[in-house]
Computed example of a mutant assay.
Amino acid sequence: MESVTKSYGSTTVLHNLNLALAPGELVCLLGPSGCGKTTALRCIAGLEEVSGGRVLIGSRDVTDLPVNKRDIGMVFQQYTLFPHLTVAKNVEFGLAMRKVARAERATRIAEMLEIVGLDHLASRFPHELSGGQQQRVALARALVTKPRALLLDEPLSALDAKVRVKLREQIRIIQTELGITTVFVTHDQEEALAISDRVAVMEAGRIAQLGTPEQLYRQPVSAFVADFVGLSNRIEGLYSGRQVRIPGASLPVITVPAAISDGTPVTAFVRPENVRLEAVADDVARDGIRGRVASSGFLGAVRRTIVHYADSTIASQHDGDSEYAPGDEVIIRFREEPVTIAADASMAAGSGIVRAVPADV
């Protein structure tokens, strides 16, 4: 996508969007509802006419080509299977439209159904399948024509949690084996981080940050990315010399926004796993910030413990074997990991050391 703009009347949904994928790469468009991610996907597919810029597949400009001339496969949130056709006939549909020889059709259908693990269900009808199986049929139908690119528009959001995790892993394996260039749209950050080579976090029709899952999580370049990708505690501090001084620590800063200079009050975004807790022993005097445990939840390999300090709250994610009970007094410390900062006062609603807890705590 080269400087792609999309407007509806006086409303601009995409603002000079630039995105290039390497052959065989899987890139997720991640963002909240209304950020433009599905519109961007529909522009690539040809389902939306761009208002400006170009869409290229390889070196071919497809901006003005209709959908059926772009050589893409697409899987939607809803399965959109033909209810009167069997699994095999649904998968065959695209091949028949391309007038592929009958013998080759049969071979490619059998190969694709085996790849998605549905070869034993070829004669079933859609209503006889589970949601996950139906979505795999839709995936097989999109891939059997051997398109140059695969577009996935929130294909897993209608499935339950366990099926969603299993199917996303299968999609990644199939995509890697076939080496097909893929754009995957989702609002689920875990989903995006788990399967992507790179993730484009979108904000109001623009790409706020493009990078590997590790880069987005460990080095978010803005408050929006830090707040949207993963969980963060928001802590009031003071910026000085590429460090932010917060109660109990001085932490390095990843990126300094243009509006921030030495002495600027800021909000620091600190990941829960970088908040350490230590038990307070009655006979040992310990320095540091003292708090009291409000709750602690077991999440398998880790625990998430919520601690109150004065009228503020902070979340710590730590080893699952370290247990804290409500009412326990603890010392709060911080790992010296780089953090994202913001000067916007609206990002720091509240009072005390920690301005807000992660949104889903």
Rank of each mutant, 00 (worst) to 15 (best):
L151I: 07
A110E: 10
F125N: 06
I207V: 15
R124A: 10
H187S: 12
T176N: 11
G205Q: 00
V201M: 02
V163I: 13
A161N: 12
D197V: 04
P213Q: 05
L118F: 03
R218T: 04
A149Y: 11
V183N: 05
A110L: 06
A194N: 11
Q209Y: 02
R105K: 12
Q175C: 06
E214S: 15
V165E: 09
E190T: 14
L151N: 08
R124D: 04
V144H: 04
H127T: 09
L121D: 07
K162N: 15
G211V: 14
L152S: 09
L193E: 04
L167H: 01
Y217V: 01
P147W: 11
A192G: 03
L152I: 07
V201W: 00
R198S: 07
V221R: 15
P220N: 07
V165A: 11
S196V: 05
G211F: 14
I180H: 11
A192V: 01
Y217G: 00
E154N: 06
E177Y: 11
F125G: 01
Q215K: 05
F125M: 13
T176W: 01
G117P: 07
A142S: 15
T176D: 13
F125P: 00
P147M: 11
L210Y: 13
A158H: 07
E214M: 13
T186Q: 09
K162G: 08
P213K: 00
K162V: 07
M112F: 01
T176K: 12
G131E: 01
G117R: 00
P213H: 05
A140Y: 00
D119Y: 07
L167I: 15
H127Q: 15
R136F: 03
Y217R: 06
R136G: 05
L216F: 06
G179R: 07
S130D: 03
A204R: 14
V183M: 11
G117T: 08
A194K: 09
Q215N: 06
S157R: 03
E191K: 04
E154G: 07
A122G: 03
R105W: 10
E154Q: 12
R206F: 12
D119I: 09
P126V: 10
T181A: 02
I207Y: 01
T212E: 12
A106V: 13
R108A: 04
K166D: 14
A204G: 13
L151T: 06
H187L: 07
L121N: 06
L150A: 14
T212W: 13
G117H: 02
T181D: 09
M112G: 01
K146I: 13
R164E: 06
T182Y: 02
L151G: 03
G131F: 00
H120N: 14
Q134R: 15
I171R: 02
R141K: 12
L151R: 09
M112D: 01
A192T: 03
E114P: 10
A194G: 13
L121I: 10
Q209L: 02
P213M: 06
D160W: 04
R141T: 09
Q189S: 11
L193G: 02
E191I: 05
R168C: 08
F125Q: 10
A194P: 12
E104M: 10
V185K: 08
Q219L: 14
T107Q: 15
E203A: 09
V163P: 00
A204E: 11
P220L: 08
V185Q: 09
R108S: 02
H127D: 14
E114K: 13
S130C: 06
V137F: 03
G117S: 08
G132W: 03
R141W: 11
A200N: 08
